[in-house]
């Protein structure tokens, strides 16, 4: 069966202050995969996601979501930024943060109403955070904050989810809860793309993987390409990881 392509990246080059971070990336992400992007620190993993989402402007190349540029397909895409990228002391509650996920579909000026609130509560329920809906966000643990972020993305009801290091600084329970939700999303036919740094868990969590280190090293099903050869190419000389079967 030929899968549809969810995200197609062509000759993408991105530079921070004109220092290149990503070089000539070609990548096709098929619909319905749960994909990890792995690579060493500074390999450009987060940069790749940010370039796809238009947060960073690439120097060259193009990105299409289901065949059209990102600007036209925003409503199909949800994003979970790195937890450290926001100010957690901001005066707002968990429910409020999740409601922000509805802002995109509302557009300018229009305010979220009952419908949006209901959607937000459902998303909180899904990540097991409903009891904490009125908590100020700084009073949540790292894992809880990450769940709130995930709920915000769920509210967007997108087809493609981009997540930047969702397991960073979260407890084991949350990690399992998050991965279960991601697997559910995949079952529902959604595409999930995760920047990931724990190589040990790749085979267990994901079915698709992209190796990245400035250039694209390899991409494909985990069972075919997650091997020492590609790991070595990505992480440098003789990188070995014990892969659990």
């Amino acid at each position: 069966m030929k899968q549809k392509t969810a995200v197609k990246i062509d000759d993408l080059t991105v530079a921070y202050n004109y220092k290149p971070v990503l070089w000539d990336i070609d990548l096709e992400i098929p619909e319905g995969v749960l994909m990890a992007i792995v690579g060493p620190n500074g390999a450009g993993k987060s940069t790749l996601i940010k370039a796809i989402l238009g947060i960073l402007k690439p120097i060259a190349g193009s990105v299409t979501i289901y065949g059209k540029p990102y600007e036209k397909q925003r409503q199909l895409v949800a994003y979970v930024p790195q937890k450290g990228s926001v100010d957690w002391d901001f005066p707002t509650t968990a429910l409020d943060v999740v409601k922000m996920g509805t802002y995109g579909s509302l557009g300018w000026i229009k305010r979220p109403g009952q419908k949006e609130k209901k959607a937000a509560l459902e998303a909180l329920e899904k990540v097991g955070m409903l009891p904490f809906k009125n908590r100020q966000i700084s009073q949540l643990s790292g894992g809880q904050q990450q769940r709130v972020f995930l709920a915000r993305a769920l509210v967007q009801n997108a087809s493609i989810y981009f997540m930047d290091e969702p397991f960073q600084g979260v407890d084991a329970t949350t990690e399992i809860a998050i991965i279960n939700i991601l697997k559910e999303l995949r079952k529902a036919g959604k595409t999930v793309i995760v920047v990931h740094h724990d190589l040990q868990t790749v085979p267990e969590y994901f079915d698709w993987v992209t190796f990245l280190n400035v250039k694209k090293i390899a991409t494909g099903p985990v069972k075919d390409i997650f091997n020492d050869d590609n790991l070595t190419k990505t992480y440098g000389i003789n990188y070995k990881v014990s892969i659990q079967e």
């Binding site: 930024p81 990228s85 926001v86």
Partner: peptide, 17 residues
């Protein structure tokens, strides 16, 4: 709504359009 979300999470605001 726009002020609030920009203050809290600028990158995310951008992805929402």
């Amino acid at each position: 709504k726009e002020f609030k979300i920009l203050l809290f999470d600028a990158d995310y605001t951008k992805t929402l359009g």
